[in-house]
């Protein structure tokens, strides 16, 4: 098992590179924040002045906001690689392609998580939500949910970035596949907002964790097939 530290080190390098590129401009995160805020506002406008309805469905709208932003974020994370054939460069250096997957997917998850944490206070104010089960738990759940989006998201973004009409293709492929983990995230977040008298939260988080294991496993095995040179 001597390959494992090498993969992890490679993954860390990719992650560092991506976060560094992002940190230099912070353009992506800024754009994502405003985009998801606009989405959250749109939901409240579309539903009218019924604050009870907004509060009841806040978890769903919150995750939809994150999901919409995730498509932009994932697309962008591979656009930086198609510029100047950077992905070919990434392929040429002797890293395991699976390390590229781990680094990219984790980077995307961190990005989405930061976004969701920044948007959280605004969402709480906008939808008049009370967080009953503790902010730390919510933050952990959000990270787990973002991991669930980013693993299949990274695989599909790698495919879509090289195809025609990638902006259409990514959400078309990604949204239906993300549904199981999204359902679990929404349900668990709702329980954190509304309180959990029946102690169901554990099983939803467990479900979300198992989706994560499945998606990350599939991505880890299948990602090399996508970026390998033919």
């Amino acid at each position: 098992m001597s390959g494992h530290p090498k993969i992890l080190a490679g993954a860390f390098e990719v992650l560092r590179k991506d976060l560094l590129i992002e940190w230099r401009t912070r353009a992506r995160l800024n754009a994502l924040i405003f985009f998801s805020l606009a989405t959250l506002l749109l939901f409240s406008f579309a539903l009218g002045p019924d604050s009870e309805l907004l509060r009841k469905n806040a978890a769903g709208y919150y995750w939809l906001g994150i999901l919409m932003a995730s498509v932009l974020s994932l697309g962008e994370s591979f656009r930086i690689e198609t510029e100047n054939l950077a992905l070919d460069g990434l392929r040429l250096i002797p890293t395991d392609p699976r390390a590229v997957f781990l680094g990219k997917a984790f980077g995307n998850a961190v990005m989405l998580w930061l976004l969701s944490l920044i948007v959280l206070p605004v969402m709480v104010a906008l939808y008049d939500v009370t967080i009953r089960e503790g902010v730390a738990q919510l933050a952990g759940l959000l990270f787990l949910g973002c991991l669930g989006i980013s693993a299949p998201g990274t695989v599909y973004a790698a495919i879509a970035s090289n195809a025609r009409a990638r902006d259409v293709l990514l959400p078309l492929l990604l949204f239906p596949v993300l549904l199981p983990s999204l359902l679990a995230s929404v349900k668990a977040t709702g329980l954190i907002f509304e309180g959990d008298p029946m102690l169901q939260l554990r099983s939803w988080v467990g479900l979300l964790a198992s989706f994560n294991v499945l998606y990350w496993g599939l991505g880890f095995v299948l990602f090399p097939k996508i970026i390998e040179d033919d």
């Binding site: 299949p152 199981p180 996508i226």
Partner: peptide
Amino acid sequence: TWSAVVGIFAAVDIPVLWFSVKWW
């Protein structure tokens, strides 16, 4: 290659989806 990857993701997702929707 790419559609084969997507096909596998899709097929694995279907039973998962079935249970998640049922539980939801």
